[in-house]
């Protein structure tokens, strides 16, 4: 049940029960994903209800079709489009994570450490931004980005993603900074650091797991987004993968196997990130505690 059971004999029945619960949960978690995988590898359709997600006439054709799509620019040699788009997705998401964290970190620090006029009001306003559905603010956002000359650029998209990721990142990081003892910064300041040096050289490294998790969230939100990306990006070599995937399933002719194959490919980088981060994930989230 908890650490209290440490070093104590656990009955066999209990252990079996726990594993049973987990196996059911894992099956629940994996089943829909396996269907996506199976669809991506199926070479034929079989419209009958089935239980096991096994590919029919396994083939790599769809994966190849998606992964080796090329950009045909009139008058220029074809370029490896999908590679470009996957790179876009990754670069844009990384940039979002970086910019989002860079914006959020000092602010979260100030919220955790300083008392200042407008602090509580600002916090409440930040929480409030999470409540307003994007449906009404999307169009004004385009107009503002246009005014900044960022419409149709990847930087504009990064800026959009980063700012939408910032409120959550601030909450998350403020909680993390609050758990770091003030003594550390004070020691650094006595040791000869300025306030900012103490923040940069002592507080930031100590908050690394939480920062990594926050960055992961920002990365994910950008990586999975397609509505803004689709509207904002004006060139095919700028597209991100979700935008490309969306085109495989149009109203009249949905190419599900290719969609599934593409989904599979996009998911791989995120899964790797999650795998790497999962140890930190728990520590990072605890430190953050998502304190509201």
């Amino acid at each position: 049940m908890s650490p209290a059971d440490q070093g104590r004999k656990v009955s066999l029945a209990e252990s079996i029960g726990a594993h049973l619960l987990l196996v059911v949960a894992v099956a629940f978690a994996l089943y829909p994903l396996l269907w996506v995988v199976s669809l991506a590898f199926s070479g034929a359709v079989e419209p009958t209800p089935r239980v096991l997600p096994v590919p029919i006439e396994p083939t790599l054709e769809h994966l190849r079709g998606v992964a080796f799509s090329t950009l045909q620019v009139p008058g220029e040699p074809d370029r490896w489009l999908f590679g470009l788009q996957l790179a876009n997705s990754i670069v844009i998401s990384l940039a979002t994570a970086l910019v989002g964290v860079v914006i959020a970190v000092p602010t979260a620090y100030a919220l955790a450490r300083f008392e200042f006029v407008g602090k509580n009001g600002g916090m409440r306003a930040l929480l409030a931004t999470q409540m307003f559905p994007a449906v009404a603010s999307a169009i004004p956002l385009y107009i503002i980005l246009d005014g900044l000359g960022l419409l149709g650029t990847r930087s504009g998209l990064v800026l959009c993603y980063a700012t939408t990721a910032v409120p959550f990142a601030i909450f998350q990081l403020r909680g993390a900074f609050e758990t770091i003892p003030r003594d550390l910064e004070e020691a650094a300041m006595v040791d000869g650091a300025t306030r900012f040096e103490a923040f940069r050289k002592v507080v930031l490294p100590a908050a690394r797991p939480a920062i990594a998790v926050t960055a992961l969230f920002a990365f994910m939100s950008a990586y999975n987004e397609f509505v803004l990306a689709h509207t904002m990006l004006g060139r095919e070599e700028m597209y991100t993968v979700p935008v490309v995937l969306q085109r495989y399933i149009s109203e009249f002719s949905a190419d599900w196997p290719k969609f599934a194959a593409g989904s599979l490919i996009v998911s791989i980088p995120v899964m790797i990130l999650f795998y790497i981060a999962q140890r930190h994930l728990i520590a990072g989230l605890t430190a953050g505690g998502v304190k509201g």
Partner: peptide, 18 residues
């Protein structure tokens, strides 16, 4: 503090964990 040429030992020791 940095300009005072002092050193301090904290109750919690405040060792930099990283």
């Amino acid at each position: 503090p940095r300009d005072r040429d002092i050193a301090m030992v904290f109750q919690s020791y405040a060792l930099y964990p990283h």
